[in-house]
Amino acid sequence: MDFTIAQLKRGEKAIIKQFSENDVPLKLLEMGCLPGNSVEMIQSAPFQDPIYLNVNGTHLAIRRETAEKIIVERYG
């Protein structure tokens, strides 16, 4: 089982490895969410969705179902 952004706990940092699906929206990449970049889980909204991230210096919110498609490797 791959480890995804959705499984990160608050304050945890990771490096984006790859996407589990080919059809990732271009917008996500444009926001800096692409392999090799760092990601930090800042907070999740009530009901654990959406998730508030710091990706490569950019603060974004994505839905849990999208986060489940982004495979990462934890560090720190």
Binding site: P50, L60, A61
Partner: peptide, 10 residues
């Protein structure tokens, strides 16, 4: 498709 991405501005 339920896709959603949003910037959280300062």
């Amino acid at each position: 498709k339920a896709f959603f991405v949003m910037e959280m501005p300062a």
